[in-house]
Design a protein around this nucleic acid. Structure first.
Length: 456
RNA sequence: GAGGUUGUAGCUCAGUUGGUUAGAGCGCUGGUUUGUGGUACCAGAGGUCGCGGGUUCGAGACCCGUCUCCCUCCCCA
C-alpha cells in the first residue's frame, strides 16, 4: 500500500449525510436572503493578488493563500527583493493570483467593474468558500463557506434594521435556541478616541477595548500603555469599563461620555435608530445588545458593526458584519456606501452538530428500494423506477439478486424509507409488496396504487 | 507567526518501570439451509503502533526531527 492519503490541514471531507446537513443550512440562509430581496452572484475563487493585498491589514495579508506563478511567469520573480530580504515583495512577485480571503472585497471589485450594469441600491447575496492560511483550531478552518448579503449604494439605516431581522430569522429558522446580536458603531469608537485626545490611535484603542471581557480592565490598560496611549487619555477612557445595564441605559451613559464629540454623537444617533426600529419590529429568538467594546478588526467599517454569538456553545462569533462607507473607493469608485453581513456556515454547522438541532429528514437517504429477485423481476422494476422518477420519487433497483438479508441490510444502511418486493408471485398476481422500513409494516398494492401512494 | 498538547485496526480507546506471535468494544465480511433489515449466536478479515532518524541485545513505549489533531495567544467565520 502507498502512504496513507491525507488532506491539507484545516480542510474537511463531507459524507453524503453531512452534505445533506450543510445543504439544509445553506438553503435556510438562502431562502431568508431571498425574502429580503437579495439576489445571488458568484465571483471567481481566486483574484489578482493586487485586488486582495492591502485590504485586510498586515495580519490579513499574511493569511492570504498565494497561487504560485507557473511557466514563463516564474521568471518575474524579484530576486533583488529576495537578496535585500524584502520577503513580502519577493512573495508578491512570485504570485500574481491569490485565493479569495472573504467575499466582501471581491464584491467591491465586482461592483466597480459592473457599475454600469447594476441599479442601485444593489443587493446581492453570495455563498461560496473562502480560504485563509490560518492555524486551524476549533471552529477555525483554512477552507470555509461564507454566506454574505450586502447592499451598496444607499446609506439608509433601514438596511441595518433589515440585517438584524435577517440574523434573527435565519438563526431562528435553524432552531438555534439562544443567541445574541451584538451591535456597536464605529463612529462611537471614533468618538471615544476623539474625546480621549488620541484620535490617531483609534485602531489601537478599539483593539484594546475589544479585549475587555477577555483580559479585564487591567489587561486593557496594560495594552493601551504598551501602544503609547497617554495616561491622561486612559483616565478619560476608563469610565467606559463600567458601562452596563439595558441598551437604553448604556446609550444614555455613552451620550454623556461623548457629549463633546460630534462624530460620537452621530454614532449614538444611528445606533439608537436601529435599536428603536428593532424594538418596533420585534425579534423571535435573538437578543440584541449594544456593546461598546465590540470593535472588529477589519479596517473598512465606518458605521454599524455586528457580531452574533450563540449561547451555551464554546465557539467564536458565527456571524459578523457592518457598514463601510467607501469600500469601492479602494477600486476607484467613491461615494457608494455599503452595509453587509456574513454567516459563517461552517461554524453554524459545528454548532448545530454539537446541539444536535437538525430536523429528522435531514439525511441523504433514499425513498424507495426495489429488492432484486432475478433478471426478469429486475427488468420490471426498472420500468417502474422510470415512472416513479418522472413523478419525482428517488428510487433504485438493487443491482443483483443476492439474498434478501443482504438487500435489507443495504436498505438499512442507506436509510431507505420503503422497500418494494416484486418476485415471481407478485409479477403474476400484479401485486407488489411494499414494506415501510421504519414501522416494519408491509402491505400489498398494485402498480397504480404504488404510483398513487408516492404521488401523495 | 509564537507557545503547549496529541497521534495505536474504519471508529472510540487499552497496552503496567522498554522484553516473546500488539488487544477490546463498535463497525465490516461470511454463516446460523426456503423471499425480509435494525436483536441474538458462531466464525473471519483488518495494524510496517503518524512519518523519518537515533539510543539499546531488544522500542508502540526512551531521545531528536517532521507532519497532523486539539488548546492558548494573534486574528477571525
Amino acid at each position: 500500500m502507498a502512504q496513507k492519503p491525507a488532506i491539507p490541514k484545516g480542510t474537511r471531507d463531507f459524507l453524503p449525510d453531512e452534505v445533506a446537513r450543510r445543504t439544509y443550512i445553506f438553503d435556510t440562509i438562502k431562502s431568508v436572503f431571498k425574502t429580503y430581496g437579495f439576489a445571488p452572484i458568484e465571483t471567481p475563487s481566486f483574484e489578482l493578488s493586487s485586488t486582495l493585498l492591502g485590504k485586510y491589514g498586515e495580519e490579513g495579508d499574511r493569511l492570504i493563500f498565494r497561487i504560485l506563478n507557473s511557466g514563463e511567469k516564474m521568471k518575474k520573480a524579484d530576486l533583488d527583493a529576495l537578496k535585500s530580504e524584502n520577503l513580502a515583495r519577493f512573495a508578491n512577485s512570485l504570485a500574481e493570483k491569490a485565493l479569495r480571503y472573504d467575499l466582501t472585497v471581491p464584491f467591491a471589485r465586482f461592483v466597480v467593474q459592473h457599475q454600469n450594469d447594476l441599479s442601485f441600491p444593489f443587493k446581492r447575496y453570495q455563498i461560496q468558500p473562502v480560504w485563509r492560511a490560518d492555524r486551524p483550531q476549533h471552529g477555525r478552518y483554512q477552507e470555509f463557506y461564507q454566506c454574505d448579503a450586502d447592499v451598496v449604494g444607499s446609506d439608509s439605516l433601514l438596511y441595518e434594521v433589515d440585517f438584524v431581522q435577517i440574523f434573527d430569522q435565519v438563526l431562528t429558522n435553524l432552531q438555534i435556541p439562544g443567541f445574541t446580536i451584538k451591535i456597536n458603531n464605529r463612529k462611537i469608537l471614533s468618538g471615544i478616541a476623539e474625546v480621549s485626545g488620541e484620535s490617531d490611535k483609534l485602531i489601537d484603542i478599539t483593539v484594546a477595548i475589544d479585549k475587555l471581557d477577555k483580559v479585564g480592565e487591567e489587561g486593557v490598560i496594560k495594552e493601551l500603555l504598551e501602544k503609547g496611549v497617554s495616561e491622561n487619555a486612559i483616565g478619560i477612557i476608563s469610565p467606559l469599563f463600567q458601562i452596563g445595564g439595558s441598551n437604553e441605559e448604556r446609550l444614555a451613559q455613552m451620550k454623556t461620555f461623548l457629549k463633546d464629540s460630534e462624530i460620537g454623537l452621530k454614532g449614538i444617533e444611528e445606533l439608537e435608530f436601529v435599536l428603536n426600529q428593532t424594538t418596533e419590529l420585534g425579534l423571535e429568538r435573538a437578543e440584541i445588545e449594544f456593546d461598546v467594546t465590540l470593535a472588529r478588526g477589519l479596517n473598512y467599517y465606518t458605521g454599524a458593526i455586528f457580531e452574533v454569538k450563540v449561547h451555551d456553545v464554546k465557539m467564536g462569533s458565527i456571524c459578523g458584519g457592518g457598514r463601510y462607507d467607501d469600500l469601492t473607493g479602494l477600486f476607484g469608485l467613491s461615494g457608494l456606501s455599503g452595509v453587509g453581513i456574513s454567516f459563517g456556515a461552517d461554524r453554524i454547522y459545528d454548532v448545530l452538530n454539537e446541539l444536535d438541532l437538525y430536523p429528522e429528514d435531514t439525511n441523504a437517504g433514499l425513498t424507495l428500494l426495489f429488492a432484486n429477485f432475478g433478471d426478469k423481476e429486475a427488468a420490471y422494476c426498472m420500468k417502474l423506477t422510470k415512472k416513479l422518477r418522472q413523478i419525482g420519487v428517488d428510487c433504485e433497483v438493487y443491482p443483483s439478486a443476492v439474498k434478501m438479508q443482504k438487500q435489507f441490510k443495504y436498505a438499512d444502511n442507506r436509510k431507505v424509507k420503503f422497500v418494494a418486493l416484486i418476485g415471481d408471485d407478485e409479477l403474476t398476481k400484479g401485486q407488489l409488496q411494499v414494506k415501510n422500513m421504519e414501522s416494519g409494516e408491509q402491505k400489498a398494492m398494485t402498480e397504480t396504487e404504488l404510483l398513487q401512494f408516492f404521488k401523495g
